[in-house]
Computed example of a mutant assay.
Amino acid sequence: MDTTQGRVSTTVSEALQRLEEQLGCQLALRGSRKFELTAPGQKVFEECSCHGRLQPRSPVPLAPSQSGNK
């Protein structure tokens, strides 16, 4: 992982953690290779999407490809 991707990942993770603290619930289940919205997280995503704040897009891989290309 390059340092830019690492910084973005950390920034997003910290922002999500702050939002979870403010709302008092867990919005996502996070792991090294998995990211899944909880029921409250899905509701927040749907509400924000309906108001034009978020745009759904295809999933982004959490880990670099293991194809051997560097």
Rank of each mutant, 00 (worst) to 15 (best):
R57G: 08
F35A: 02
L29F: 12
R18V: 05
L16K: 08
Q42R: 10
Q26C: 05
E21H: 07
E46W: 02
G52P: 15
T4M: 10
G52R: 08
Q5H: 03
Q66N: 14
A63H: 14
G68H: 15
E47Q: 10
E36W: 15
G31V: 01
H51E: 12
E20A: 09
Q17A: 04
L16E: 12
P59Y: 11
S9F: 13
R33A: 04
C48P: 09
R30G: 10
C25D: 15
S9R: 02
E20K: 06
L29C: 12
R57S: 04
R7I: 00
K43T: 13
Q17V: 01
T11H: 07
S13N: 04
L62G: 10
A39H: 08
G41V: 03
S65K: 14
G68F: 10
E47T: 05
S9Q: 09
S13L: 03
R33I: 03
R33H: 00
C25A: 14
F45T: 00
L54R: 11
P64W: 06
G52H: 04
V60S: 03
L16P: 04
Q66F: 14
G41T: 03
Q66H: 15
C48L: 09
T10F: 12
L37S: 00
T38M: 04
E14A: 00
S32Q: 07
Q22L: 08
V8D: 00
R53T: 13
G6R: 08
L19N: 01
K43S: 07
M1A: 00
S58K: 15
D2N: 01
P59V: 08
S13Y: 07
K70P: 15
L62H: 11
L16W: 13
R18F: 12
V8W: 07
G31H: 04
T3S: 10
